[in-house]
Amino acid sequence: KDKDLLKGLDQEQANEVIAVLQMHNIEANKIDSGKLGYSITVAEPDFTAAVYWIK
């Protein structure tokens, strides 16, 4: 199951987060929520590491 990592990002921010996570071998998903911006989700086992790397 995926957990929400970040919400309300613009496309550039979302792409930067995806890139950082991929560099650390964390699979992440970018979801277009329309006017609400983009959300990033990661698998539950990767959540703690993902939070660490996006600081």
Rank of each mutant, 00 (worst) to 15 (best):
K35S: 11
L21W: 02
N29F: 12
W53E: 00
L9S: 02
D32W: 14
N15Q: 08
E27C: 13
M23K: 10
D4V: 15
A28D: 03
I26G: 02
W53H: 05
Y38H: 03
I26T: 02
G8D: 05
L9D: 02
A28K: 01
Q22V: 08
S33N: 15
V17L: 10
A43Q: 09
W53P: 01
L21F: 02
I26P: 00
K1I: 11
A50C: 05
K7E: 08
I31G: 02
V42F: 02
E16G: 09
V42G: 02
E27Q: 14
Y38C: 06
I18R: 03
N29H: 13
I54K: 00
L9V: 04
D4L: 15
Q11C: 13
F47M: 05
A50I: 04
I54W: 09
D10V: 05
K1S: 08
L5N: 01
E16D: 09
A14T: 03
I40K: 01
A49H: 06
Y38R: 00
L21Y: 00
K55A: 12
I18S: 01
Y38G: 00
A28R: 01
L21E: 00
E12W: 12
A50V: 04
K7L: 10
L9K: 01
E16W: 15
D10I: 05
A43T: 06
A49C: 15
K7S: 12
A28M: 03
G37R: 06
A14N: 01
W53F: 07
Q22W: 12
I31K: 08
A28V: 05
I31A: 04
K30M: 14
N29E: 06
G37N: 03
P45L: 13
Y38M: 04
E12Q: 12
L5G: 02
D10M: 07
G34A: 04
K30Y: 07
E12N: 11
E27M: 15
S33L: 15
N15C: 11
A14L: 04
I26E: 01
I40E: 00
G37T: 08
K3N: 04
H24Q: 05
V51E: 11
T41Y: 10
P45Q: 14
I40R: 00
Q13F: 07
S39H: 06
G37S: 05
V17D: 00
A28P: 03
G37H: 05
D32V: 06
Q13G: 06
A50S: 04
E27D: 11
N29S: 10
A49L: 11
E16R: 14
I31C: 06
I18W: 07
G8S: 04
W53G: 00
N29G: 05
L6P: 02
N29R: 14
V17Y: 11
K1H: 10
L21I: 01
E27Y: 14
G37W: 07
Q22H: 10
K1A: 10
L21Q: 02
K7Y: 12
N25F: 08
G8H: 08
Y52D: 05
L36E: 12
D32G: 11
A14H: 03
D10H: 06
Y52C: 11
L6T: 03
Q13M: 09
L36G: 13
G34C: 06
D4C: 15
G8N: 08
D2F: 15
N15F: 09
K55E: 13
I40Q: 00
M23G: 07
T48N: 13
P45W: 14
I26M: 02
V17F: 10
Y38F: 12
A14Q: 01
D2W: 15
Y52M: 10
I40H: 00
L5I: 07
I40C: 03
G34S: 03
T41M: 09
A19L: 11
L6M: 10
T41D: 02
I40M: 01
P45V: 14
A19F: 12
K55P: 05
E27T: 13
F47C: 06
K30S: 08
T41E: 04
D10T: 15
L5D: 02
K3H: 06
D2C: 13
